[in-house]
Design a protein around this nucleic acid. Structure first.
Lengths: 178, 178
DNA sequence: CATTCTTTTCAATCGCAATTGAAGAAAATG
DNA sequence: CATTTTCTTCAATTGCGATTGAAAAGAATG
């Protein structure tokens, strides 16, 4: 690999690593995927280790993680002893799937937990209806629940982009502006 | 504070803490803000420490961090020695501002770094135009740059919600579907 | 302006997740 | 099926950001 290409790949891989780290993935996953994505040929684990500077163990784990998200695949044309890997290239498809399978669950759990907190307060108020502070907190808690639900709708809508003809995010947010 | 309200606040604060931690903030910021948000009265640092279980230092730092984002303010009505704090309540305004001031910069930096990698490769190709692998990597790198630019437009559009009459996210994404 | 109370700072510590590297498991080869 | 090569696992290590708590700085009070 030419020195310039090596450096360009390193910059791109590091950039993508930072982006996916911000997204809650391991930055090594971003580095490995990008290295594969920018390679004209499939690559072996030790080639990846050489280019990324990661250890054999980190490469193996990273490839496993990436494989679980279908972000890399084994090269079907690979022959010889060593396995060869290629990057999935449908980036928008990847993003939609991750949003659907991860962010949606995260926000969904938050909705449930806010509901749980509300349930607790309501039970307390049933016993002691004059607790003004609890009444007040209950109102704000309903606000947080509404927020989480709006977030859920947003993520849900976003995850469907490409399947839907129209993206009604505007509608989801308009309701909040009131 | 009643025991039930105490527990409900703790659940909500923890939930918000997890959400903001996923967003790259300290979870203690989410806990402190939520505790204030659910309190009918402004609170002092040691009340916050008692409710959240954080140390005095963590509360002080957390309040400073939150103050820098205008997520909490000193209670203007507070009198006596101790400072009292209140939570900013315009949550959607907060979200838009954070997206504008933080996410936009993050993606903007990524755009620049991909451009930098492209510049490097192009310089190398000017010297050695027959490097087929570099040519190929350059094409893919342009793809990553386009992705980052689309992300930038998306974030930018999202950050403007409320100021614009129409949210043209659909348009931004449509271009990618081609 | 001395005293008392409050807040901030920061070096030390903690806790967690990423990473390493060698041992063990698995797979390919002859 | 023995040998060699490759891949995975996992206990130990590293690295880093969050947290602590005591000391320093800063405010309020009489």
């Amino acid at each position: 690999m030419s020195d310039s290409r090596q450096r360009a790949v390193a910059i791109a891989a590091e950039t993508m690593g930072d982006l996916v780290a911000f997204w809650g993935f391991k930055s090594s996953m971003g580095r490995i995927w990008t290295t594969l994505y920018l390679s004209p040929t499939s690559m072996t684990a030790d080639e990846l280790a050489a280019v990324t500077g990661l250890s054999s163990g980190a490469i193996s784990m990273g490839l496993t993680d990436l494989g679980q998200w279908d972000l890399v695949a084994k090269d079907p044309l690979g022959e010889g002893r060593k396995r060869r890997y290629v990057a999935e290239t449908d980036i928008w498809g990847i993003i939609r799937r991750i949003i659907r399978e991860r962010e949606l669950r995260l926000v969904g759990r938050s909705v449930e937990r806010f509901q749980q907190a509300i349930g607790l307060l309501e039970a307390a108020l049933a016993e002691n209806p004059d607790d003004a502070e609890a009444q007040w907190a209950l109102g704000r808690l309903h606000g947080l629940l509404a927020l989480a639900r709006t977030g859920y709708s947003l993520v849900e809508t976003f995850a469907a982009v490409g399947r839907l003809d129209l993206l009604p995010i505007r509608g989801v947010l308009r309701r909040e502006e009131a």
